[in-house]
Computed example of a mutant assay.
Amino acid sequence: MNLLQVSLLLAAGLLGGGLNAVAGGGSLITYPTLMAVGVPPLYANATNGIAVAPAYAAAAFGSRENLRPQKRRMLQLIPTALVASVCGALLLLNTPHSVFEAIVPFLVLAATVLMAIGPWVNRKVTALNGGRDLHPAALHAGVFAGCLYGSYFNAALGLILMAVIAMGVSEKLARVGALKNFCTMLVGVVTCVMYGVWAEVDWLAIGVLVPATFLGGYLGARVFQKIPERPLRIAIVVYGLVLSAILLVRSF
């Protein structure tokens, strides 16, 4: 890996970490950058999954005050999140390279659409639960689906989990976010172990991205917070649409 490639990864990590601190969607920056520096799509996905995992753990640790009041719910979700994450990782490990390259444009497009409609979905699902918790099975089903997706393709994982958790429980946004952070941490643990052992990943790229995303998250919390979220989200959506179109053209 040359100096230009390392510089691109550093910039992607800083920007991706900053975006995650405000609007989410950081993987829409880091994942294509990994491909741009020469990591094949399937390996780039596994590499990205490991690279973002430490930031998930940090977010969960930072949310511990809002996790304590829902300790029982949190513990009950552990088996669901772990089993779903293992299933998603196994699915990725058994996906042929040609198949993954064919579906990547659609996965990026799906993540981009989620970025666009995420706030609207969160408002709607929060209103739909009518101020009461749904049956626990509904929450577990939503978390299972979200963690399955997240361990297979990480982009927009936080948005998915925020929506399904907000639909299943009647809690203030901070507690919903804390539970989301806890579940993403579990996804990160599973992907680190399974992809680190069985997938071919670029450890040098991981070594560059991990500190960059951490620093980006810290700076984003301080600097990006001063920028209105809406323009940032629009910019990410436009970027994601262009990227998915480019990937789709390249797949033919």
Rank of each mutant, 00 (worst) to 15 (best):
Leu3Tyr: 15
Leu148Pro: 02
Pro32Met: 11
Tyr149His: 11
Ala81Thr: 07
Val190Leu: 01
Tyr31His: 09
Tyr31Trp: 15
Ile206Ala: 06
Ala245Met: 10
Val190Gly: 00
Gln225Arg: 13
Val22Tyr: 04
Ser251Arg: 00
Val189Glu: 04
Leu247Phe: 13
Asp133Glu: 12
Val108Pro: 07
Arg72Trp: 14
Val104Phe: 07
Cys87Tyr: 00
Ala55Phe: 02
Ala59Asn: 09
Gly216Tyr: 12
Ile227Trp: 10
Leu114Asn: 05
Leu92Trp: 04
Met167Val: 08
Asn45His: 14
Ala58Gly: 09
Val108Trp: 08
Leu82Val: 09
Arg132Tyr: 10
Pro211Ala: 05
Ala141Asp: 07
Lys124Ala: 11
Ile246Ser: 05
Leu34Phe: 13
Gly158Ala: 13
Ala212Ser: 14
Leu248Pro: 02
Val189Leu: 06
Lys172Glu: 11
Leu92Glu: 03
Gly17Arg: 05
Phe252Ile: 02
Gly220His: 12
Ala178Thr: 00
Val52Thr: 06
Leu8Ser: 09
Lys124Asp: 06
Ala46Glu: 15
Val99Lys: 12
Val86Leu: 02
Ala12Thr: 06
Pro40Ile: 11
Asn45Asp: 14
Leu9Ser: 10
Arg230Phe: 00
Ala221Leu: 10
Thr191His: 05
Val104His: 05
Leu179Glu: 00
Met185Val: 07
Lys180Met: 05
Gly142Phe: 08
Val242Leu: 15
Thr112Ala: 13
Ser85Asp: 00
Gly24Thr: 15
Ala58Phe: 15
Val176Met: 00
Val113Phe: 14
Glu101Ser: 09
His97Met: 04
Thr213His: 11
Arg123Asp: 15
